Simulated assay, not measured.
Amino acid sequence: MKALIQRVSSASVKVNGHSVGAIEHGILAYIGLGKDDNSQSMQRMIDKILTYRIFENTEDISKLGKLDQNLQQVKGGLLLVSQFTLMARTDKGRRPDFGRAMAPDIAQALFAQMIAYAKTQHPLVATGEFGANMQVASVNDGPLNFLLET
């Protein structure tokens, strides 16, 4: 499993011109599910995203400017967007190979579990729409982007 996370000032997802998910200050997470992923790796990824320290400490003067706060500490939003292309193999040729990606029907069920689990761990969770053509807008804060893997 891979997650490309971005610290954002805001982010939103539209499908067919209608907003399906939006957050203010927080993390936009693109999620790629691989063939070997399961409920345990999904939970580890959500736990990692929620506790990954990518926010600056604004309260402790001795730590100003240091990235030592996580999403839960800053009470930010989490926007989860399914992104199978993260699993592409790109090291050979000029065309991505999606052979490592989980089959769509299995991935949809695991992504639904991921959303449900995230909502039990954090109060501010929004999502895109699995398998839809989505228009994602974000204001990347930093910019800060990290590729997490389980």
Rank of each mutant, 00 (worst) to 15 (best):
A11Y: 08
A11M: 08
S12C: 13
K14L: 10
V15E: 05
G17M: 10
S19Q: 13
G21L: 09
E24P: 14
L28V: 11
L33G: 14
K35H: 14
D37I: 15
D37L: 15
D37E: 13
D37A: 15
N38D: 15
S39Y: 05
Q40Y: 09
S41L: 15
M42F: 10
Q43D: 14
M45R: 06
I49V: 15
L50V: 08
Y52M: 10
R53D: 05
I54H: 07
E56K: 14
E56M: 05
E56D: 02
N57R: 03
E59F: 04
D60M: 03
K63T: 00
L64P: 00
L64T: 00
L71W: 01
V74H: 01
V74C: 01
K75T: 01
K75G: 06
G76A: 05
G76Y: 00
G76Q: 03
G77L: 05
L78M: 05
L78D: 03
L79K: 03
V81S: 01
V81L: 00
V81A: 02
V81H: 02
V81F: 04
V81K: 04
V81Y: 00
L86H: 14
L86G: 07
M87D: 10
M87H: 13
A88Q: 11
R89E: 09
R89D: 12
K92W: 13
K92S: 12
K92M: 11
K92V: 11
G93Y: 09
G93T: 05
D97S: 12
D97W: 11
M102I: 14
A103P: 01
D105K: 05
A107D: 12
A107C: 12
Q108C: 07
A112L: 05
A112P: 08
M114H: 09
Y117P: 09
K119I: 11
T120A: 11
T120I: 08
Q121L: 03
Q121N: 04
H122G: 07
P123C: 02
P123M: 02
P123H: 06
V125D: 07
A126C: 08
T127S: 15
G128R: 11
G128Y: 03
